[in-house]
C-alpha cells in the first residue's frame, strides 16, 4: 500500500518535470527560428560596401546603411549620457531612502514609466522638444530613448546597492569619510557590476526602438553628425525599407535587422561577462 502510494507520487513528479521542460523547449523554438531566419536573410546582404556606404536612390543597385549605423550609435550614446547620471542617482536614492512619500511616489512613477508604450513617449517628446524648436532632431530622439532606459538603470542600481553590506558603509563613515565620498568611492565600486549591467541592458532595450524615433529623430537619407538635426537610425531605416514596394530595399532592411540583432546579442553577451568578471565578493 505505502509502496504504491510512493510510486504514484514519483510518477507525478516525473510528469511535472517533463511538463516544464517541454514548455521551455516549445517557447525556445520560435525564438531560435526567429534569430536563424533573420541571420539567413541578412547575412547575404552584409559586406563591406553595405556597412560603409550611404543609401542609394531607388533603382540604383547597392547602397548601404552607414548613416543609419552612425545615427543609431550617436542617438544611443547621447541617450546613455543623459540617462546614466539621473538613473544612477535615483537608484542610489531609492537604495538609501527610507520609504517616505517621495520614495513611494517616485517608485510608482518608475513603475508606470516602464509600462508606458514607447510610441506615447515619442509623441510626448515631440510635443516637448520637437514642436517648440520647430525641427526634428537626434537630440530629441536621445531624450525619448533615455526615458525608456531609465527604469532598467534605476532598478538595477537600487537592487545592487541594497545588496552591498551595511558594514562597508559603517567602515567608511567611521574613518571620517563624508557621506558623499562613502557613496561614490565605497558603495558604488562595490556594486559596479550590477550598475553596468543595468546600463547595458538599458542600451540593449532601446537599441531597437522605432516608435519613439518616428516623431523625434525622424530619419535622414544623408550622412549627419549634427545631433540637433534629423538623423537616420537602424530601426527607422528598417521600417522605411520594409514598407517600401521595392525588392531591393527589402533586402537592405534584412541586412539592417541582422546588424541590429547582432548588436543586441553582443550587448547581452557583454552583460553576462561583466556579471561574472567584475562581481565583487562580499
Amino acid at each position: 500500500m505505502m509502496k504504491e502510494r510512493l510510486r504514484f507520487r514519483e510518477t507525478r513528479n516525473m510528469i511535472f518535470k517533463f511538463f516544464i521542460i517541454v514548455c521551455t523547449l516549445i517557447s525556445i523554438i520560435p525564438l531560435v527560428l526567429l534569430i536563424v531566419y533573420i541571420f539567413r536573410q541578412g547575412i547575404s546582404v552584409i559586406n563591406w560596401h553595405f556597412l560603409t556606404s550611404l543609401p542609394k536612390p531607388v533603382g540604383e543597385a547597392g547602397g548601404g546603411i552607414l548613416n543609419a549605423l552612425i545615427g543609431s550609435l550617436l542617438i544611443i550614446l547621447v541617450a546613455t549620457m543623459i540617462a546614466v547620471p539621473f538613473g544612477v542617482s535615483m537608484g542610489m536614492y531609492f537604495s538609501e531612502s527610507s520609504p517616505n512619500w517621495v520614495y513611494k511616489i517616485a517608485h510608482l512613477c518608475v513603475d508606470v514609466l516602464q509600462g508606458i508604450p514607447s510610441i506615447v513617449i515619442g509623441i510626448i517628446i515631440y510635443i516637448w522638444l520637437v514642436k517648440p524648436f520647430g525641427q526634428f532632431s537626434a537630440f530629441s530622439g536621445s531624450v525619448a530613448l533615455s526615458f525608456m532606459m531609465l527604469p532598467s538603470i534605476i532598478k538595477s542600481t537600487e537592487e545592487t546597492l541594497k545588496l552591498v553590506p551595511h558594514s562597508l558603509k559603517e567602515a567608511s563613515l567611521s574613518l571620517g569619510v563624508p557621506y558623499y565620498k562613502t557613496m561614490l568611492r565605497v558603495i558604488m565600486p562595490a556594486g559596479i557590476s550590477g550598475i553596468l549591467n543595468g546600463i547595458i541592458l538599458g542600451v540593449a532595450r532601446v537599441a531597437g526602438e522605432t516608435a519613439p524615433l518616428l516623431f523625434t529623430a525622424f530619419g535622414n537619407p544623408f550622412m549627419s553628425f549634427n545631433i540637433f538635426k534629423p538623423i537616420a537610425s537602424l530601426p527607422l531605416i528598417i521600417f522605411n525599407y520594409a514598407i517600401s514596394p521595392y525588392e531591393d530595399w527589402h533586402r537592405l532592411a534584412w541586412g539592417a535587422s541582422f546588424i541590429l540583432v547582432s548588436m543586441v546579442l553582443i550587448l547581452n553577451i557583454i552583460t553576462k561577462v561583466t556579471e561574472t568578471r567584475w562581481k565583487v565578493q562580499f
Binding site: L168, A171, L175
Partner: peptide, 20 residues
C-alpha cells in the same frame, strides 16, 4: 561628525575590510 570620526576610530563586531 566626519572630523570627530577621524579622532575616534571604530572597529566592528564583524571584520569589514573594503572588499574592492
Amino acid at each position: 561628525p566626519t572630523i570627530l570620526r577621524r579622532k575616534i576610530g571604530m572597529v566592528f563586531q564583524n571584520p569589514n575590510p573594503f572588499n574592492t
